[in-house]
Design a binder for these strands. Structure first.
Lengths: 206, 206
DNA sequence: GGCGACAGTGCCACTGAGTGGCATTAGCTG
DNA sequence: CAGCTAATGCCACTCAGTGGCACTGTCGCC
């Protein structure tokens, strides 16, 4: 994931730099001044880019705020697409998630925590973030269904993926509430414990 | 739920009528012309209301499109708040959902199906709709946690509710894909079958 | 090394969602 | 009928997001 490759054409390098500066500065401004209180003009001013350029890099104000989320999901999808995935699906998906988390850029963790905190406190970001989860779910179901042929019940497959994502979000929520305690390992740990709770969750009494 | 009560003060009646006209017309226009292609000015023109009045009734363009969703969730929350809920929580939540569905206004079913179809095809509505689910989840966890004291593990409780919502959405997705086949009973049926699939979903192989 | 092609950018004008303020209307009350 | 107040209409404004066009820095080619 650490693609600091200076071996790109100069144009690509510049563009990538701009992309990163936008995401980085956006996260800082949104956190410092608040999401609504920060206009895109403010952001573009700070990065010294025109608004038009912003929209060539990100589709919306929400998108740039959730860049760290997006990075994770796209890395995860890539991995699932090529991974072997043997044994119980739910377990395999979790293993792939752990592997993806370990492979993320060292700086990603900090950005991700800030993004999660922001997302918790801004409803529109929350919704948008859930939209990402949904898109990822859909893509995963397609990938997995295509791979195992028509042998697997579609509803069952979808349900598995939905439960996977629900567990991830539950773990993630707690991690964020703890201020990202334990860093990446802490998160992995919470994921493991949350998944272990699933059987209890199905049977626990009111 | 069928609150066609003509026994309200005249002012309230008018306001309610406007609210309903907005939701009804919005659903029709969004379906006929497309969500993006319909501006709020178009809608307000059709209902003969000022845009200012629209925003006194609904918080956003997405809100009015998802009014049927909102109706369901708010009715469901009301029920969960007063229901008895004995036995396994997941089962109790499902029973409460069935009961809520049965109690919905006769016309609600049609509106809901149209809303679901719209939501499937418009990303921003999809996200917003997921936001509703999330808000409902949060509210339910609070209600349930408050009721059973500190005896229940918070993470486990949340996980249960998340799995409940995930199952509902999976059932709902299929119902919508089938064009609402079987109406309300068909939906209830799908819900039952989807919930029955949960154990399989946890163990099914890749 | 100069030169054309072209991706990426800046600038400008525009649409449409959403808000605040204030005057006006219409329903309620005595 | 007169007075109160909630609801509405109207107007002006901010800001997200888009389309068009001119410009410039980078790359490839001779």
């Amino acid at each position: 994931m650490s693609d600091d490759l200076r071996e790109l054409p100069l144009r690509e390098r510049k563009k990538l730099r701009t992309r990163r500066a936008l995401a980085e500065t956006a996260l800082r401004l949104f956190t410092e001044r608040g999401y609504d209180a920060t206009t895109l003009d403010d952001l573009c001013d700070a990065v010294e880019v025109s608004k038009r350029t912003f929209f060539r890099n990100y589709r919306s104000k929400e998108d740039v705020a959730l860049a760290a989320d997006s990075d994770l999901w796209s890395a995860y999808l890539d991995r699932v697409a090529v991974a072997r995935l043997d044994g119980p699906l739910l377990e395999a998906l979790r293993a792939a998630l752990n592997a993806t988390l370990e492979d993320m850029d060292p700086d990603w963790e900090r950005r991700f925590l800030a993004t999660r905190e922001l997302s918790e406190s801004v409803p529109v970001l929350q919704s948008h973030s859930l939209g990402y989860c949904q898109d990822t779910t859909r893509a995963m179901v397609e990938t997995l269904a295509g791979r195992s042929g028509a042998g697997v019940d579609d509803t069952c497959l979808r349900l598995t993926v939905e439960i996977f994502v629900a567990s991830w979000r539950t773990a993630c929520l707690r991690w964020t509430a703890q201020g990202g305690q334990g860093g990446r390992d802490g998160l992995t740990d919470l994921i493991e414990r949350t998944f272990a709770l699933i059987p209890d969750a199905l049977t626990c009494a009111a």
